[in-house]
Amino acid sequence: MQLYAHPPAQRTRQVAADAGLLAWVLLWVLVARAVHGAVLVLAAPGLAVEDLGRSVAGNMGSASGAARDVPLVGDELSAPFDALADAGASVSGAGQAAQDAVGTLAAVLAVVLVALPVGWALLRWLPWRLGWVQEATAARTLLDGTPDLHLLAARALATAPLPRLAALPAGTGAAWHAGDPAAVRALAAVELHRLGLRLPGDGPTRAKCGS
């Protein structure tokens, strides 16, 4: 797989784009983490309410138990304390529900803060980057072993900008049609130049590790 172009300038742009995407993702992960922690602070009142309700329920439950031990009138004496214990349990449940709501809000905000900006960046980066990798890998496959320069030359004739073709020596198209190796090589070089690749034998030896 061809991951980066051969010319240093194009390779630098690709590496910078990849590093920029990673930095962008890391930035928004850190922002989401900070926002998540800040929102969770809002759960403190709910925690206090839960603790208060639990404390009231516990104390009233103990008082109810003690009142129930009073002979003859124990049940009547314990009834108000049981009611207060139930009320305390309800307050504790409300405090827990408030904490759950804050936790959900914090999680949703964190996900949105990561998903939206990172998704926007990926939609711009993936087609450009993966499209280049796919085309460059296919071109490299044509160059491996016995290079099939005729396909690359035909691709250049079909898709290269006219100014780029016009810059070639006069008669290159006719020479390519006649099978002239020099014309085939010149046209193949146009297509490979667009991808940032080199013809076999041109410049430094091509790397074999996808760089």
Rank of each mutant, 00 (worst) to 15 (best):
V91G: 02
A101Y: 04
V108W: 10
A98S: 04
D82R: 09
A94R: 04
Q96M: 07
G103I: 01
G95T: 03
S92W: 00
V102H: 04
D86L: 12
A106S: 12
D100P: 07
A87Y: 08
F81D: 10
A106T: 04
V108H: 07
S92D: 03
A83M: 13
G103E: 04
D86G: 10
L109R: 11
D86E: 15
P80F: 08
A107K: 05
G93M: 00
T104I: 05
D100S: 13
A106H: 08
L105R: 07
T104G: 15
A87Q: 12
G93A: 00
A106M: 08
D100G: 08
A79M: 14
V108Q: 08
A107D: 06
A89V: 01
A107Y: 11
S90T: 15
A106L: 08
G95E: 02
D82P: 08
Q99I: 02
Q99L: 02
A107H: 05
G95D: 01
V91P: 01
G88P: 02
G88K: 01
F81S: 13
A85W: 03
A83H: 12
A101C: 02
A107G: 10
D100C: 04
A97P: 06
S92V: 00
A101I: 01
D82V: 08
A98H: 08
S90V: 15
A97E: 09
S92C: 00
Q99G: 11
S90L: 10
L109K: 10
S90F: 15
G95Q: 03
F81A: 10
L84M: 12
